[in-house]
Write a protein that binds this DNA or RNA. Structure first.
Lengths: 211, 211
DNA sequence: CTGATATCGATACCGGAATATCGATATTCC
DNA sequence: GGAATATCGATATTCCGGTATCGATATCAG
């Protein structure tokens, strides 16, 4: 078990995790080899073994890794046992979808509330979660020590919301507005531009040769 | 202008594009250097120059690249002048958000319709776009030669929808269900697991040392 | 017209990630 | 118990993207 890990490995761990928990119960009680996982996921076996070495105590030759233990190790490593509060700003359809997304729980996140500036929405509840006025964002986050924020507002307001969040002590921002946000050092921003993702997917193979 | 391009370059092009169109009109008529772009975006100037070489006919020493021409070249390359039809399956909040997303148009996409299996939704319109029964998906896509599909259904139904899409001749699939879908060769699937994206963002700096 | 300067394109170099190879070890079968 | 085999972990190699360097060229100043 080696705690030094690369981003690439980190990005593959959930893949292994998903694959392992999708196995029938009967197989979870036994062992599984890196070779088998690689085969199933279309990856290189050495790569899988190396990735698993980062989180697991090691497998046994000829046998492989104890499946349930491996699931536990990966899950623990990814922090799926955590319980981190998340806020969402922008209660359009996108924001609502975030409040209703049940899959966050599987990864150790809980959306604790939504924010909007539309007075008609403020005070209502979505999926049992209260919608508050954006003006309360700062105090709310500081009181509860919220560190993760999701931005689902129109692009014109995105940077402003981002500033508000960083001011409230938020450290991780997931931005769905189609603009590239910048934040001060110490704050991690991930810009998820869906149109762009689609463009890369659909255009990649169109244009010339892409290696 | 070299048509061989890497994914990494492709992913940076929109960044340049956004930066260039955000320039004041007065500067768009002139020229801009790779050095200046790199400076503004916090990148390496050689990298920018290399990227631009993939799409542009070249700049002139001491002068740089003609700004408006460069904007046109990148846009053309990214296919922003295209007009590709897209369908969305799953009319939950997430699917609705897709039908209402105006930013697709900027990237050359148009959502031409939504699909669901809920009879209460079928026949209605969302943002002026009709919601059809999933059973019509095949004929609809083949008639109009739709090649791009977005999946926003619950995870249990995702693989089934995926199969339906590939059967209907769809070539590019953007999947938001939190499962890893697989499709036959010739079909590109991008699995966008939001919980996972959030996990990578928020956990990256938590767990051990990440290089 | 000539020298200084900014910028380009090409080539060379560097580092990290993926992959291949190899010896070691555990299990299975005879 | 010993040979055959599957699998592991470690080391070596390859490949690719990013960065630095250098000569060439266009503009500008004097």
């Amino acid at each position: 078990m080696n705690k030094n890990i690369t981003s690439q490995t980190l990005s593959r761990l959930p893949l292994y995790f998903n694959y392992l928990i999708s196995l029938p119960e009967s197989r979870k009680s036994g062992h599984i080899s890196a070779t088998a996982i690689a085969e199933a996921l279309g990856l290189n076996d050495v790569q899988v073994r190396k990735d698993l070495a980062s989180v697991s105590n090691g497998g046994r030759p000829k046998v492989g890794y104890p499946t349930s233990e491996l699931i536990g190790d990966i899950g623990k490593f990814l922090g799926f046992a955590n319980h981190d509060g998340v806020i969402v700003v922008g209660m359009g359809n996108f924001g609502r979808a975030m409040l209703e997304n049940r899959s966050f729980a599987d990864y150790g996140f809980e959306v604790v509330g939504g924010f909007d500036c539309d007075e008609k929405l403020v005070g209502t509840e979505i999926n049992g979660k209260p919608v508050r006025n954006v003006s309360e964002l700062g105090s709310f986050c500081r009181e509860r020590n919220i560190q993760i924020g999701i931005i689902t507002v129109p692009e014109a307001a995105a940077q402003e919301v981002c500033n508000l969040m960083t001011g409230a002590g938020i450290k991780y921002i997931l931005n769905f507005a189609p603009v590239h946000l910048s934040a001060p050092a110490g704050v991690a921003v991930h810009n998820e531009n869906i149109s762009l993702t689609l463009a890369m997917l659909a255009r990649k193979t169109d244009v010339g040769d892409i290696k």
